[in-house]
Design a protein around this nucleic acid. Structure first.
Lengths: 160, 160
DNA sequence: TAGATTTAGTTCGCACTCGAACTAAATCCG
DNA sequence: CGGATTTAGTTCGAGTGCGAACTAAATCTA
């Protein structure tokens, strides 16, 4: 039984790009920050004062990407760096009042947009979609690994 | 009947990020190019010699992003710029032999990975997933637009 | 306890993306 | 015909993201 396929990567990239750009555009004009910065605020809104590495894990980003992000957000008064008293290596990131107010303004809109985006899909379909996104997230790395181990055996299986 | 919801943006971003990074990592190590550059090659593999703006549309990117991308790909001998004889504004992008060979090597793997990613999902589920991704792609802009028109009632927003 | 290892975060160089502003060529239209 | 507008592409500045190399602090271990 031949199942239907489609260009997963391609469609995922388009969908993500469209949504990300729309969100970024709106946030820049309405609130003067980028979607990436808003993502950091979103993490802090439930986990205020966490170290940078926790934010990085939460957002699936490298720590080095957070350095500049936090720098810019500190400069605009959205967050604040604070040295951890018990572990000298750690820097805790705290929401500043401006950051907290901003998140307060946007969080409702985000909920509404999620609703709107899912509106045409049934409960069962939403479950499928959620499982798909989680599946991709968890198995993306594995694919490359598989491919590599397949290559180490014998490269010649390049036909198709 | 309250339908279930989830953080569409967040999950989409994670899934896309995971898949994109995995693909980028593999392509860099195996073929010495980035996922973005590979995307251009993919477009050219079915539409060789198209103008830059067509590639940009196909990939949903701004034209200005393509300039540097094509520059770098020209430098590594993957593609070639050629002035259009009938329209002096247009630059046509052609696959070079190295680019054509590279795509020949990767296209089978891409198919296999798409298969693997979709493996746990039934035909009906795949249809749902595809429709979801297309839905997001088409309605992402609309969301912001709606929001803006809703705001324009009370906000300045100098119209042009 | 001293040295080795691990962990947190930064710095650096590179690639990618965008939007705004710009040049040049084609087209529109009065 | 000739100026106004549109279209293709580039340039520029800023933000984002990565990995590798680095510093500093904590922890492990012999």
């Amino acid at each position: 039984m031949t199942k239907s396929t489609f260009r997963v990567f391609h469609l995922l990239q388009r969908a993500h790009g469209a949504l990300f750009r729309a969100a970024d555009k709106f946030l820049r004009h309405a609130e003067g920050l980028t979607a990436a910065q808003h993502g950091v605020l979103l993490v802090l809104s439930t986990d205020d004062g966490v170290p940078i590495s926790t934010i990085a894990e939460e957002l699936r980003m490298g720590k080095s990407s957070l350095t500049g992000l936090v720098d810019r957000m500190s400069k605009t008064g959205l967050v604040r760096r604070a040295p951890c008293p018990v572990d000298g290596r750690v820097t805790r990131i705290h929401l500043e009042p401006a950051g907290r107010r901003l998140i307060g303004r946007t969080v409702g809109r985000i909920k509404a947009q999620n609703e709107a985006l899912l509106e045409p899909f049934s409960d069962a379909e939403r479950d499928t979609i959620r499982r798909f996104l989680l599946h991709i997230t968890e198995h993306a790395d594995g694919l490359v690994g598989d491919v590599e181990s397949r290559e180490t055996v014998g490269v010649t299986s390049d036909s198709a």
